[in-house]
Design a protein around this nucleic acid. Structure first.
Length: 404
RNA sequence: GGCCCCGUCGUCUAGCGGCCUAGGACGUCAGGUUCUCAUCCUGAAAAUCGUGGGUUCAAAUCCCACCGGGGUCACCA
């Protein structure tokens, strides 16, 4: 039975890298019908951020990453699990009390190694390069090193999937498994996501905040698909994955070994794609937070034209702004248009026929003609299709806008 | 600096010794559809596979060195 975990420290909000650190183990566990555990690593009392745990849980749920078990390390501290293990280590001579803290006693002249299932490689260290790290702090809380080993063992974790930044401290954990006589889980380290601008890790970058992306009108399925492909790839180069499709297709052989750069343009493409997958009624509800007045007939007009939900605001606001900002337009077209339209019954076919006939009769260049009409009615050079927009606005409002 | 990881089009990647004159996707450019913009369709440019040595009849694929990038060296995770 595969059991994996996502073990964030509640020091901030979920970022793109964190989301990926959650989806991969989630999919790995669910691929074989196993369990996914959420473990809150809140052992540093100084770095607690209020509301971070609730935010994290809420965000995971948005993406459908439901956990089978929830464990909070600070609560386990009260149960004395870490203290007990530290005592055991001291008693067996593998750790010692140092000014109120407990440090691991690193053996000299040994070598530790493991096989990384992401890198697909044996990695080893000489113990001489290691130092006697603190395992239990003087405040009674464990450091990460003690806590992971104790908890992964206690919770029956079979596959540890974590960030690359943990690789250098793996030998400490290896030693602990050995001292405690625990079975070792499979261990794999994920690549770090790089920022295209700074070249540095995307961690703690505002632009990589998942909540911010969500607020800016990115769909969960788009963000998820984007993140899935940022460090993992299938053999057949398939691009589109829903969470359940990813669960079905995930294969550790597809994990990447080199650090990917976060490519926002690809995220935009995914988002546009998933927006177009939505039904008009679904999209209506999704757009409402950004444009409360929006109505169902408007949706098909903007669906192909937005890359984020927020784009609906700039594209469709003209429907509701009265009067619209005046734009310099060619009045000569508008006067005759007003006449031609005033007698027309308000249907798509009739409007189009009237406008076409007008252009033909007067010899108006169609491009110029429609653009000046567009400017008068929508107040922008970039708009949804004109005729459909006129239908939605209604005859009175349309003629009023042309008259101005 | 020590230790560790990594290195294929601008970006994400396929590739596991011959099928590679290196494939796909995003982006870019060109054309088509069209009242704008987009969507959609078609096509193009784009990696001497970081560099230099080997091994082999044959290397992007194996080995070595170098260079480059990243991570980590806390009573933070």
């Amino acid at each position: 039975m595969v059991r994996t975990r996502f073990a964030p420290s509640p020091t901030g909000f979920l970022h793109v890298g964190g989301l990926r650190s959650a989806v991969y183990p989630y999919a790995l566990a669910k691929h074989s019908g196993g369990q996914f555990i959420l473990r809150i690593e809140d052992t540093d009392q100084k770095r607690q951020v209020k509301g971070a745990v609730a935010s994290l849980q809420q965000t995971l749920k948005v993406f459908g990453l439901d956990w089978d078990e929830l464990h909070i390390q600070s609560q386990r501290v009260k149960q004395g699990v870490y203290q007990k293990t530290a005592d055991l280590l001291v008693a067996s001579g593998h750790a010692y009390l140092d000014e109120g803290a407990v440090r691991i006693k690193i053996p000299a002249g040994e070598e530790v190694s493991y096989h990384d299932f992401v890198l697909d490689k044996d990695i080893s260290w000489k113990t001489d390069i290691l130092t006697d790290m603190v395992l239990l702090k003087s405040d009674g809380f464990p450091t990460y090193h003690l806590a992971v080993v104790v908890d992964d063992h206690a919770m029956g974790i079979t596959h540890v999937l974590r960030g690359h930044d943990w690789l250098p401290s793996t030998p400490i954990h290896l030693l602990l498994y050995q001292f405690l006589g625990y079975d070792r889980p499979e261990i794999g380290h994920l690549t770090d996501i790089m920022d295209p601008a700074s070249g540095k890790l995307s961690k703690r970058k505002g632009s990589a905040s998942v909540n911010e992306l969500l607020a800016n009108g990115y769909l969960p399925e788009a963000i998820l698909n984007f993140v899935i492909l940022l460090g993992w790839a299938p053999k057949d180069n398939r691009e589109l994955f829903t969470l359940s499709e990813f669960i079905e297709h995930i294969d550790p052989a597809g994990f990447q070994k080199s650090n990917p750069v976060l490519n926002k343009a690809k995220l935009d493409w995914f988002n546009g794609h998933y927006i177009r997958q939505k039904s008009d009624t679904e999209l209506l509800q999704l757009i409402k937070p950004y444009l409360p007045e929006v109505t169902l007939p408007i949706i098909p007009l903007i669906k192909d034209r937005i890359t984020t939900l927020a784009d609906a605001t700039s594209l469709a606001s003209f429907f509701f702004i009265r009067p619209i900002p005046s734009y310099p337009t060619d009045k000569s077209y508008l006067v005759t248009t007003l006449e031609a339209l005033s007698t027309v019954s308000w249907s798509k076919a009739a409007i189009e026929a009237a406008l076409s006939n007008l252009c033909a009769a007067r010899g108006f260049p169609r491009g110029d003609f429609f653009m000046s009409l567009r400017l008068a009615i929508c107040g922008s050079k970039i708009t949804p299709p004109l005729t459909e927009s006129m239908l939605i606005l209604g005859k009175d409002e349309t003629l009023a806008r042309i008259k101005l």
